[in-house]
Amino acid sequence: MDPPQEPLGPIPVALSTSSVYPLGPDHAFAVAKDLGYDGVEVMVTGNSLSRDGDQLHALVQRFGIPVTAIHAPTLLLTQQVWGGAWTKIQRSALLAHELGCDVVVVHPPFRWQGKYASGFEEGVRRANETYGVKIAVENMYRWRTSGNGREMYLPHWDPVPMDYEYVTWDFSHAAIGRVNSLEAVQALGERLTHVHLTDGNDSGTDEHLPPGRGTQPVAETLQFLAASGFTGGVAAEVSTRRYRKVPGELERVLGETLEFARTHLQRPAADQD
C-alpha cells in the first residue's frame, strides 16, 4: 500500500509592485502587509529600489513578508534597464537568488529583437539550468492597430504551443489575445508555474482590471488550479491608477482582489492541512 500523500497547503497570493506603480516597492510592501497578502512580486523598473537586493531584503525584514517572484525588466517601458536582453534575465535570476525566491517572470522577445528571439527557447532552458531558477515565460497578445492584429512577439505571444518548461499566465493579456484562460491553463498542465491575477475585456487595451470585472473565466480558472494540485504562486497585478483619487480606494480594491483569490483558491477539503 502506498503511503498517504501529504496534504497540499494553501496557494500563496502575493501583491505585485506593479499594482501600486509608479509608487515604489516600499509602498507595495506596506499595502501587502496591511491587507494580509502572503508576499510581494517585485517588478524591476527604473526605480532604483526595485533593483537593489540589500534594500529589498531590508523591506522583507521590516514587513515580515517574502519576495515570491522577480519580474524581469522585459517590458517596453523597461528596455533601458539592465542593458541587453540576456543580461536582464541573468541579473533578475541573481536578484531572485539573493532574495530567496526561484521564479523569474519574463516576456517573450519583441519582434525587433531578432537574434535574441531566434535563440530564446534554448536560452531560457540554459538559464533555468545555469541559475537554478524557474524562468516563467508570460503569455502576451497581438498588438491591435485599426482593428488588425500585429505580431509583435517572437517566437510567439502564446506560450501554450511553445517548448517552455515554466509559464506565467496573465488574465488581462489573455483577454486581449481572445484566449480562454481556463482552457489554456488546462492545456499547460504542470508547466504553469505562476499566475498574474487580474482580468480584462476584448478591448485591445491591457486593462489589468480587478478579477471578476472583465470577461475572463478567472474564478473558474482559480477553482481549477486549487482542485488540480497547483503548487505554484499567484500575484495580484491590478491597475489601480483610477482608484487613487479617493483615499482608501486603492486599498479597498486590492483587499477585494485578495478576498477573491482566497475564495476561489480554496483547496478541496481533503487536500487542506
Rank of each mutant, 00 (worst) to 15 (best):
A69M: 13
W169T: 00
A236S: 15
L35Q: 06
R252L: 12
E190G: 05
D2V: 06
R267Q: 07
G119Q: 13
M152R: 09
L254S: 05
Q113A: 15
G233A: 12
V246L: 14
G147K: 11
P247S: 09
Q223H: 04
D26R: 01
V103R: 05
Q61S: 14
A226S: 05
P109R: 08
L182C: 14
D26C: 00
R144L: 15
K134E: 07
M1F: 05
L99A: 08
W157A: 13
V44S: 07
H107K: 08
Q5A: 14
A72H: 02
S18N: 11
Q266L: 09
D202R: 15
A72Y: 06
S48W: 06
D271V: 00
G200H: 10
Q5D: 04
V105T: 03
V81T: 06
L8E: 12
P73G: 06
R267L: 10
L76P: 10
H27N: 07
L192Q: 00
A269I: 05
V67Q: 06
S239V: 04
G64I: 03
T198I: 03
P66R: 02
G9C: 13
T221Q: 08
A72F: 04
P159I: 04
I89T: 07
T198W: 03
R191W: 00
G83T: 00
G229W: 09
L209Q: 01
G204L: 02
T45H: 03
L99E: 05
L265R: 04
R242T: 04
E138T: 00
A235P: 04
E41V: 02
H71M: 06
N148D: 14
W82A: 00
P108D: 06
D163F: 01
P10L: 12
V185I: 01
L197P: 12
R242S: 14
A219S: 09
G119V: 10
S92P: 03
F171E: 09
E121M: 05
A184C: 05
G84L: 11
G114P: 09
R242H: 14
E6C: 08
E151I: 10
W157V: 08
G147C: 08
V246P: 14
P247M: 07
E98Y: 10
G24N: 07
G255V: 01
L192H: 01
Y243R: 08
Y116D: 15
K33G: 09
L254E: 12
R244K: 10
H27Q: 12
G248V: 00
P7W: 02
V60E: 15
A93T: 07
T87L: 15
F110H: 11
G147Q: 14
V105K: 03
H97T: 05
G229N: 12
I135W: 04
L75M: 13
P109S: 10
N148I: 02
S172A: 13
P211N: 07
